Computed example of a mutant assay.
Amino acid sequence: MRSIELFAGAGGLALGCERAGFRPELVVEWDKWACDTIRENKAAGHPLVSTWAVHQGDVREVDWNAYANDIALISGGPPCQPFSLGGKSRAFDDTRNMFPAALAAIEAVRPKAFLIENVRGLARKSFADYLEYLTLRLTYMQNPAGSDWSSDLATMTQWKKFGLTEEYGVVRALVNAANYGIPQQRHRIFFVGFRNDQELNWVFPEPTHTLDALLVDQWVTGQYWDRHEVARNSVPDMPSRFRRRVDALRVTGATKGTLPWRTVRDALVGLPEAGDSPLQGYKNHVAQKGARSYPGHTGSELDLPAKALKAGSHGVPGGENMMRTGDNVVRYFTVRESARLQTFPDDYELHGSWGEAMRQLGNAVPVELARKIAESVYSHLSMNRDRVSEGNEKVLV
């Protein structure tokens, strides 16, 4: 199925969609380094990007009419800074707010489905009205042409009240990537919509991994330590914040049939210790010096999912781009380790300096999270295609 990727960055969301079966017809990104990452991997023959046509430039300058009514999926993550907890949170007043550009592309192309991602800051109470506005705009795909978005929200609220025909059935979900097997606690909001000529009974994929299952794996059965060949006398102390919860799990064992959260230790299996120079056979795996811990900047724990990587290098809040070993020594993640946390393929190389590559990764959607959601969308569209084909055959008979 043909797709278009907006605000592609280094390609996390597009890679996941490619793995799910979509074939990006056009990949749009304005940042030179991110485009270089995709282009260089394409030149190296990486199979996931071999057919991608990369457009380096502003999404607002693309002639979307050339793709109208011929695309299965538009996917993308508009720049998150206007809504990020770490930014100035100027939202709709921020010149970097690209939701209007995403809406314009979807309106022009009218894909069978769309998949839009952004930071959980968008779900904050202070942005509640704007979040509802975006949901209704994606639903009706009509611009009420009021004086501003708030007056448009009032108009569309009336449309909803009186049952105006919806152009897209929209499902909105706030998810933690760790609950889908990503070794990182990354909370993001997703908008998934299906055009009204498709079946609209799609539901967001159910979580597959839980903290409780990890705690049982570590502190009840101990199988986690056995898998990682950690001697029982070397197992770290249980974090005090989990003791009461683990005691309850010893009694109930209730993990709802889910898999354990994946941890930093899980993600880094098979990677050798990085040094000052590149290791043969390991892309982007070079040590970065200068990490230090101080209050509020403590790094990610080895035996839990990482904190959400941030699009910064030094000094990001909480030390999200650092890891803390069992002896409380901190160091920066290498680019390859960070790519593992974002579930990028090991043979996919990030281009640019350490800070530049970390910025690309910090802005990315985890590839495997994208794949799981996109696979569900692909399956739903396939069922609709089969349903239409069967209907046409009956008419011919």
Results as ranks from 00 to 15, higher is better:
228 H>M: 07
87 G>F: 07
323 M>W: 14
128 A>C: 11
276 D>N: 13
350 L>M: 11
5 E>Y: 03
114 F>V: 10
112 K>A: 08
211 L>F: 10
241 R>C: 09
254 A>L: 15
144 P>A: 03
140 Y>H: 08
383 M>T: 13
74 I>Y: 03
136 L>N: 01
11 G>L: 01
181 G>L: 01
340 R>K: 09
189 I>N: 01
119 V>T: 09
79 P>Q: 01
43 A>V: 12
84 S>F: 05
166 E>A: 09
314 H>R: 13
220 V>C: 05
250 R>H: 13
73 L>C: 07
65 N>D: 15
126 S>Q: 15
208 T>H: 08
327 D>V: 15
206 E>D: 12
348 Y>F: 15
388 V>M: 07
202 W>L: 05
176 N>Y: 04
80 C>N: 06
96 R>I: 12
201 N>G: 10
374 A>I: 05
289 K>R: 14
208 T>E: 06
201 N>K: 09
268 L>S: 07
96 R>H: 14
118 N>F: 05
373 I>T: 04
162 F>R: 14
337 E>D: 04
359 R>C: 08
244 R>L: 12
29 E>G: 03
110 R>F: 13
100 P>L: 04
296 G>P: 13
249 L>Q: 06
228 H>W: 06
105 A>W: 01
183 P>C: 04
257 G>T: 15
152 D>F: 07
35 C>K: 00
80 C>M: 07
210 T>K: 04
349 E>V: 12
91 A>Y: 08
392 N>Q: 15
156 M>L: 08
43 A>M: 09
322 M>D: 02
142 Q>L: 14
216 V>R: 01
201 N>A: 11
2 R>S: 10
330 V>F: 04
176 N>V: 09
108 A>C: 10
189 I>G: 01
257 G>D: 06
129 D>G: 14
33 W>R: 08
252 T>C: 04
99 F>N: 01
321 N>Y: 07
326 G>S: 14
26 L>K: 02
374 A>D: 03
361 L>T: 06
